[in-house]
């Protein structure tokens, strides 16, 4: 004889802990008298036990960063400006920064972790150098959504400066090459928010960065006269190019 629906429902409710005392007693009485009911109850308990033993999986490690990077500009504009204002002007946050004015045709190697403890702790001098152009405009932006690299790179401009704003997560150590077509543009500095460990090297027409993990940093390019340029980004993992993107600055168009 099939188990009555009423008792099937009571078994389920009991398993879920959603049964009253009276109903519980009624169910127990039924189970005491019915071998079929006990067998069914055991099967149900086994099923629920099986389901409860399935472990939750961890989301992909870069997903959170990817989501935060994907928030709409209208909602993030305030935050993005805030970041650059922070990098350029606010002395209260810890960051590593260097401005290497006059780096033309020379190779500069900068380890941000070292710099943060030495010459650039006094950020007010930094403010004195470049605090005016905090009113930056977003020129263009690219998103990266690879298995091991995710985030955005944005190009902003202000009076005589182009700013590459990197907001990235990389599972493994990667290099990013930023080539700019106009060789009269020169590397003017680097700033990093709340982290260290990004290595920057600059030469004529090209900046190379090495990083791993979650990083937010900016590269400053001096662009006197606001000349047109295209910045080509190449992401390298183990020396191999895994992604390419372009950011264009063309105020004349």
């Amino acid at each position: 004889m099939a188990t009555e629906q009423k008792y099937t429902d009571l078994m389920n409710a009991a398993i879920d802990g959603e049964i009253g005392d009276v109903e519980s007693a009624e169910l127990q009485s039924y189970l005491d008298d019915s071998a079929e009911g006990r067998a069914m109850n055991e099967q149900l308990a086994n099923l629920c036990s099986t389901l409860d033993r399935v472990e939750a999986e961890e989301p992909p490690p870069h997903l959170r960063h990817l989501i935060m990077s994907s928030l709409s500009p209208s909602k993030t504009a305030q935050e993005s400006t805030g970041l650059l204002q922070t990098l350029l002007a606010a002395p209260v946050l810890k960051y590593a920064a260097t401005f290497a004015a006059g780096v033309v045709l020379s190779l500069t190697l900068v380890n941000s972790g070292q710099i943060s403890n030495t010459a650039f702790d006094d950020v007010t001098k930094l403010v004195g150098t470049v605090a005016k152009p905090v009113d930056t405009g977003l020129v263009s932006s690219v998103s990266i959504n690879l298995a091991d690299i995710a985030g955005t790179v944005s190009l902003r401009n202000t009076a005589s400066m182009l700013i590459l704003d990197f907001d990235l997560f990389a599972k493994r150590p990667i290099e990013i090459e930023a080539d700019y077509t106009d060789r009269t543009i020169w590397f003017n500095g680097f700033a990093q928010l709340e982290s260290s460990g990004t290595t920057v090297s600059a030469q004529a027409g090209k900046v190379t960065l090495a990083m791993q993990g979650k990083r937010r940093y900016a590269v400053y390019l001096h662009n006197e006269g606001g000349r047109n340029t295209t910045i080509r980004l190449r992401f390298l993992d183990g020396g191999e190019v895994v992604h390419e993107a372009r950011l264009e600055y063309a105020p004349d168009k």
Binding site: E57, E58, P59, L63, I67, S70, S72
Partner: peptide, 30 residues
């Protein structure tokens, strides 16, 4: 993040799809 991802994963049976759905969910919420 984790419960939303796991909900999508159990519904879809694909980590890639669950990742995309999770991203969409949070953008919609935002």
């Amino acid at each position: 993040e984790k419960p939303v991802f796991n909900t999508a994963l159990r519904m879809l049976n694909s980590r890639d799809d669950a990742r995309d759905v999770t991203q969409t969910v949070f953008l919609k919420v935002f």
